[in-house]
Structure formats: C-alpha cells, structure tokens
Design a protein around this nucleic acid. Sequence first.
DNA 1: CCTACCGATCGGTAGG
DNA 2: CCTACCGATCGGTAGG
Lengths: 222, 222
Amino acid sequence: MPRRRGPTDQGLRTRQTILRRAAELASVEGLEGLSIGALADDLGFSKSGLFAHFGSKEELQLATIDAAREVYVQEVIAPALAAGKGLTRLCALCELFLSYVARQVFPGGCFFASAMAEFDCKPGPIKDKIAEIQAAWMETLRRAGASAVDAGELGPHTDPEQLAFELEAALLAANWYFHLFDDRSYMARAADAIRLRLSADATKRGRATLATRSTDTTAVTT
Amino acid sequence: MPRRRGPTDQGLRTRQTILRRAAELASVEGLEGLSIGALADDLGFSKSGLFAHFGSKEELQLATIDAAREVYVQEVIAPALAAGKGLTRLCALCELFLSYVARQVFPGGCFFASAMAEFDCKPGPIKDKIAEIQAAWMETLRRAGASAVDAGELGPHTDPEQLAFELEAALLAANWYFHLFDDRSYMARAADAIRLRLSADATKRGRATLATRSTDTTAVTT
DNA sequence: CCTACCGATCGGTAGG
DNA sequence: CCTACCGATCGGTAGG
C-alpha cells in the first residue's frame, strides 16, 4: 500500500500532543491568552516548528476547540449515552459533567464554559464554533428530557428546552463557583438543585428512577 | 479653604472617565485583554499620560473593578434595596440584574460574570477581589431570601444559601446565552426559572407577593 | 521540524 | 498630562 501524501502518522501524533496541551492551557489563560511562543516553550518545540502545523493563530484556536470537543465527548457525552435512555441518561449527563469539572479534566474548569465566556461578545468564526457546540450540548440535554417525557418519567407538561436551560445553569454555576471559591460544596449544591428540579417534573415512574441515583451525588465530588 | 495635596477634582474626573471606559472595554476584551495603549488611544490620551494615573497594569485592573462595582450598585443593588424587603427585594434583585444585562450597561454583558470567568483559575489579588464581590452579591441574595422566610413569604424549610445559588445560576446562564446566541428569549427563560423556583418555596403570602410581579417578566426584555 | 528574522505592540520608565 | 525611549514578547515569514 503506497504511502499517501499529506500528514504522516508521526505528524498527526505531534499535532494531537500540541492540541491537547493547548486545550489545557487555554482553559486557564483563555484562547486569546494562549500564545504560540509560550505553548512551544511548554512543549519543548521551537515556535516556528509548532507554528508549521497551523496556518495562523486562529487556525490553532479552532483546532484546539476540536481537540477539546473530543475530550468532552469521551469524558461526558459518550458515557452518558451508554448509561441508558430518558431520565437515566439526563441524570448521567449532569453527573458526568460535574465529575468532569471536579476531576479537573481541564485545569481551568470546563473548556467550553471558559471559551463561551471569553467569546460570547466577540463575533467571528471562534464564537460561531463555540455557539454551535453549546447548542449541540443543550440539544443533547433537551432530547434526553423529551425522551424521558415520552417514557413517562417526566410529566406531559414538562418543557424540555426550559428544563435543559435550568440544568445547564446549575452545571455552569457549579463550574464557576467551584473554582472561584475553591470549594467543592458547590458540586453538591448543583446536584441538589438538579435533583430538585427533576423531581418537580417527575412522574411516579420518574421518581423511582431518581431514587436509584440519589446516592451518586457524593460520588461526584470525589 | 486651602487646596489640599493629592489629586485635583479634574484629576479625579479624568480618572473616573478612564475607569468607566476601561470597564466597558474589559467586559468585552477581558481584564487581561485590556491594554493600556489601546485604552489611551480610545480616549485620546497618550499612553504614558493615562498610565500616570496608575502605578501598574494590575492597579488599573483593580481600579477598574471598583468602578464597575459602583455601576453595579447603582444599576442593580441600590434600586433593589429601595424596592422593598424580603421576597419583593429578592424578585427585584433578579429582575434588575436581567434588565442590567438586557440593557447592556456593559457592552460585553455582566462585568463580574466576565471577570469571574476570566480569573476563577488565576490566583492573585484580582481573583481575590472578584471573589469578594461575588461573595457579597450571593450574600445579598441569601439575606433577602432569609428575610422572606422570616416574613413568612417563603416556607420554613427554605435553604436561603441553596436558593441564592440557584437564582444566581439562572441569572448567569441568561447572561451567557443571551450574548452567545444573540437571543433575548433567554431573559424570559431565566425569569421563568426564577419564578418557578420561588413559587416552589413560597407560602400563600409569598404567592400573593409573586403574583403582583408576574407581569414584570416581559418588562425585563425591553 | 529548525534558525534567524520582520514590524507591531506589550507594560513600564526617564525626564519634563 | 506630554515625548521619547526601554527590553520583551506578540503573530507571522523566509529559507532550509
């Protein structure tokens, strides 16, 4: 089989190494604060050597967002989809998010929370990409909620979009306050808020589902 | 009356002009992204002329936070304290926050939301100051909630600290998504979430208080 | 992937 | 409040 043109395996591995580290640094310093020189020093490359993988800083930033998305899918979305359907999945999405924040998968907290906060008022391709990813995440929450309604776990008057907004609000607030006050108790506050909110819309069947997960709350903070 | 040493009235006015503009720019570009040269150009000063008012960039950042705090007190806290006590005040705090975001008092959204997101993982005097201000804001919400319990508007099982966390979560989420998606409907989502959450803990007297404010929801988005 | 370099801008200073 | 300047670092390029 002839060797194709384009990036070699080694080149792709180097690229992945760069982008994983870039995502870690950007979660703390921001995607603008991420500097090519500092990233190269950190990785032991020359600045131009690193830069050769990307055409511009903006291309590096966009590629970093893709790499962070892969981490997020692996740490939160995929395990939640595998955990079950409906209300079980919705609970798993929330618990896995809180665990991902508590385990500091990214040292600066949720990469996308940081990126959203940094770019929400800066129009351009980076904001567009972040908005697309956040919209997909909200849609993942909404669909799990809608499926829980269909399964009779949440009552028929449930508004899945509103529910997704409120769950996401608690998750984001946990991310900020956990780091700002260096206080893990905000994880439990968010988990309590989420359990209360889900209980409010739950049917008898839904409450049974929730009961099986109630002990998982403390697991989130370890 | 002899003229004292120190800053003149004119100097103080110039300083205030600088800091108001600095807060506006920092809400979009971040407190680190705020550059002394760009700020000076924007205001028509020389860089060093502007810099003479502050000993370092960090001093400028800290002074900018103080100036933003004054705006926040004027726009949100003072009118809410004047609006009433207990549940009335708690509702006013939330409604005034949403209005302050919707009116874009700062062009980049809530100054403190931006600053918290930027510095929550960067230890130092700026993070400390932001944390102190956020703690005071949460305490303002908590006290209004506790006073609503004392007044019999919220039930005795209400946890005012948890309630403050959940209200703040909805307010912050509205701030982010309003800007990220350029969609005012998130203001109404947050107002709905807040009304629902307060209703859950409200006594009959509390529900009467909430009923008088229910039409204010749309006012927030104008 | 490297060395060597570009102009622009950064925070900050000297001296007035 | 200004002009003039400092060394360091920025994103990016030339050429290999």
